[in-house]
Design a protein around this nucleic acid. Structure first.
Lengths: 168, 168
DNA sequence: AACAAACGTTTGTCGCACTAACGTTGTCGG
DNA sequence: CCGACAACGTTAGTGCGACAAACGTTTGTT
């Protein structure tokens, strides 16, 4: 039960959102993200996973093993929260956490074969969920959207350094 | 102090976000919304306001006085949370809360002259903040973005009814 | 040897969306 | 008229995500 059906909640005609609110890009973003997050979270929950799982697994497969701090930076998950995520992943046998012999402060996190299979599975799940999320948009429009969002995000992301290995 | 500067937090080179994460529309939305929310909230805080204040004031000016439940529906704020918002607004003298003589369950919320002035002020503040938010985009691109977001939001908004007074 | 900085971890905060429940007041069917 | 039910405002609480603060350990630097 995700939606209320108890007794209150009238739900009469159209909500009549004020013009001023409909014009606010920030509000549009918030509202849409709320719904998007819900969609994604519920979909992943059905597969016994969370966004964080995917982020960590993807990061591990693309860049190889790393310390928790490294994973934190790559995924944007705070190191305080990373602990729990890795507990979950390790508990499911999707990653392995071993002390780094070269630097005993660190744990080295490695993706397991099962973790890789999991990642493929989540790739599919997320594909389907995004199909649902972006359903009203044509392929071209989806690209447009991604482009616009990416540019905005980059603009508001601090400490963005040009890649040292630019195009040859 | 919104950003860490204590002692931890290394902040070396580029964060190296995995491809897979960068392709995720849902993630793009989440990340951007986090930053957008922060920008807006901080900006409004400087003016001793919150998003909710604006939403309620705008709704009152556009549709006239209403009960708390009505305002809830118009703004999307839960009626549980509306209580506190109206306390703040009433405390600042921006709205008036009076029992509805026709239906003693209801409170009638009215915007005050001071509330109207406040609304104009917040209009300006939000304009500036959105200028900052959308800085990298041209006017055309901003329209594109709004259009795309609106379509997605509408598609994922439940209980959307066609306006009864459609074109003849 | 002294000190700062990075690591992993625990604990806690804040805001937001949302649920549950309660007492009051209105509406409606018998 | 009366009992059921629904809407109202309000209080309290949940779950989650982003984030801060602090602590013990280890490492690099001077």
């Amino acid at each position: 039960m995700t939606r209320a059906e108890a007794a209150d909640v009238p739900d009469d005609g159209a909500p009549q959102t004020p013009e001023r609110l409909r014009r606010l890009a920030s509000r549009l973003l918030s509202q849409l993200t709320t719904r998007s997050d819900r969609l994604i979270n519920e979909g992943l929950a059905r597969a016994d996973a969370r966004k964080w799982h995917y982020a960590v697994l993807a990061s591990l497969e693309e860049y190889g093993p790393g310390s928790q701090a490294t994973l934190s930076r790559r995924t944007g998950i705070y190191r305080s929260d990373m602990v729990g995520v890795l507990n979950e992943l390790a508990g499911r046998g999707l990653v392995e956490r071993a002390p780094d012999p070269d630097d005993r402060r660190r744990n080295t996190i490695t993706i397991s074969p099962r973790g890789r299979r999991r990642l493929r599975r989540l790739d599919k799940v997320l594909d389907e969920l995004h199909e649902e999320l972006l359903a009203p948009l044509s392929p071209v429009e989806r690209d447009q959207l991604m482009g616009l969002l990416t540019r905005l995000l980059d603009h508001h992301t601090p400490g963005l350094t040009r890649r040292p290995d630019g195009p040859g």
